Simulated scan of single mutants.
Amino acid sequence: MSAIAIALQASGDVAQARSTFCVGIIVAATCGASVIYGIERWSLAKQTAVHFAVMVCTVLPALLASGWFPLDDFWGVALVVAVFLGTGAVLWTLFALIGLRTRRPR
């Protein structure tokens, strides 16, 4: 994604370059942090808290920098935070249900 963003930047398409770079950060952070849920000695609460902290430090700034949302006032920033929290809650719930359903007894 970084190479594509650099090529877009070089071609003069700054908005698309920024957007592509932010998508790369979001995908890399999300995929990279997913291994947290594989640490079996941690409780689900600890896994969730650490994963959330990583997302706050990576995905949330990427969303704010992406240019996808108007950030002219408080409500624009509030929208980004709401989308971040809402999407995270839905995905966490979905994957928790899938994990519970596919968990094999030990």
Rank of each mutant, 00 (worst) to 15 (best):
A3L: 08
A3I: 11
I4C: 08
I4F: 03
I6R: 15
A7W: 14
A7V: 09
A7K: 14
L8M: 13
L8S: 00
A10K: 02
A10G: 01
A10H: 00
A10C: 12
G12Y: 09
A15H: 06
A15S: 13
A15Y: 01
A17M: 03
A17D: 09
R18L: 10
R18P: 09
S19P: 03
S19V: 02
T20I: 11
T20M: 07
F21T: 11
C22R: 04
C22T: 08
V23W: 00
I26V: 02
V27K: 14
A28D: 05
A28H: 05
A28F: 00
A29E: 02
A29P: 12
T30Y: 03
C31G: 07
C31L: 13
G32V: 05
G32Y: 02
A33P: 11
A33H: 08
S34H: 10
S34L: 01
S34Q: 13
V35T: 12
I36T: 12
Y37K: 00
Y37F: 13
G38W: 00
G38N: 11
G38D: 01
G38I: 10
I39Q: 04
I39E: 01
E40A: 12
E40N: 02
W42C: 07
S43A: 07
L44W: 12
K46S: 09
K46D: 05
Q47S: 06
T48Q: 05
T48F: 07
A49Y: 00
V50P: 04
H51G: 01
H51W: 15
F52W: 13
A53V: 06
A53H: 02
M55F: 04
V56I: 10
V56L: 07
C57Y: 15
T58L: 06
T58R: 01
V59T: 12
V59D: 13
L60E: 11
P61N: 11
A62N: 09
L64D: 06
A65G: 15
A65Q: 09
A65D: 05
A65T: 05
A65K: 11
S66V: 01
W68M: 06
F69N: 00
L71R: 00
F74Q: 04
F74T: 15
W75C: 06
V81S: 03
V81L: 03
V81H: 12
A82F: 01
V83E: 10
V83M: 11
F84M: 04
L85T: 07
T87I: 08
L91V: 07
L94K: 12
A96Q: 11
A96I: 08
L97E: 10
L97N: 06
L97I: 03
I98Y: 05
I98E: 02
I98M: 08
G99F: 14
L100P: 09
L100H: 13
L100Y: 08
R101Q: 08
T102K: 13
R103F: 14
P105I: 14
P105N: 14
R106S: 12
R106D: 01
R106V: 10
R106Q: 15
R106G: 14
